[in-house]
Design a protein around this nucleic acid. Sequence first.
DNA 1: GGAAGCTATGAATGATGGTTCACTTCTTTC
DNA 2: GAAAGAAGTGAACCATCATTCATAGCTTCC
Lengths: 202, 202
Amino acid sequence: MAYRKTPAEISRLEAAREHLIAAATSVVTEVGWSQASVTAVADSAGIAAGSVYQHFSSKAALAVEVFRRAAGREVEVLGEVLHEPGTPVERLARGVEVFARRALENRGLAYALLAAPADPAVGAERLEFRRRYRALFAEVVHEGIEEGLLPAQNGEITAAALTGAVGEVLVDPLGARDEETTGALLTELVAMALRCAGAPRS
Amino acid sequence: MAYRKTPAEISRLEAAREHLIAAATSVVTEVGWSQASVTAVADSAGIAAGSVYQHFSSKAALAVEVFRRAAGREVEVLGEVLHEPGTPVERLARGVEVFARRALENRGLAYALLAAPADPAVGAERLEFRRRYRALFAEVVHEGIEEGLLPAQNGEITAAALTGAVGEVLVDPLGARDEETTGALLTELVAMALRCAGAPRS
DNA sequence: GGAAGCTATGAATGATGGTTCACTTCTTTC
DNA sequence: GAAAGAAGTGAACCATCATTCATAGCTTCC
């Protein structure tokens, strides 16, 4: 036994892997999945193309990891916001606002997560991601119904609609260059979301 | 001048072209853009791969034509439904129902038009397609506002939300194997759409 | 019927881009 | 410091398709 990984070496490898994921994420954010070749990602990380395969068994595996990290972050944030104190209606409004604001602030990533053409493997992850988003929204809608704040409805459909609506608004340059129009867009989006769930008009 | 296209020959060519487009459409409907290779499409049309280039200058040109035909049909149908007699609210309900029903009845095509990974050229067409869909919905929403049937709102956002919502519900197998669940889904979708636009509860 | 021009063919071509692998470089251990 | 083993390299490899092109097969016209 002439060689054993030392803790320092292990953490160096781990760091290299993380660095690679970060680089890949930024490449995807900037140019999308379809343009993110192994070479481009490796260049961005400052390593050779072949070295990518020290950390991932295939390009698809790296892509899935990149997607999971970013998507996981978003789901987590939304989940936290939706579970903060407040009535279901208030939480729904806040959730939509945060979802949309984060997406608008990082459009490239939002587009990559929600809509950009990608490997089938990433496509499958995307379905799962949307499903989780929907489940979070649906839960709050159901609470609203139970508390009598929202009318009876299929919460899953409302939740799907909210996800689809925010996505749709983002993907197409419907707006929001500057601060002002972004704010207006968010206000309108939240209003739309509350109507969609059937919240009483304020 | 020893040769000139005779009318019969011209219409034979035209028919061959149409046949190719139809075959390509069905391939795309069944397996999606990414799997629709020139060879697969040509096989489906019963011609050689090279012959595709007698009718289209590139695969992308054929893809765009396929998209335009299918998308154009859908936009046309929606436009007609939305301009039938009735209040804006009634027309909105009917429009969403028709949009969703058609999509559910031909899921493969709907998916190809709305969401499936595709060439950049098709992606650009898709943006335009969604824009037209939105414009149609937005027009009716604006009429509803003017007639005092809908509350003041950003009609573009509501229209985008409706498009996104229907698309989202379709893409994921949220439901609708049989007749019964399809009907229920449509009812819920329409109800959601009316809430979304702020129509008074029925 | 046959010359001229067009369409159809499908194997060859070429570009792209993921993956491999013989080799180099760095780490560990003694 | 030297042997052993791991990580890093990047040029070569390979698979996948879109596209081309020399050739064969039809149509037209006289």
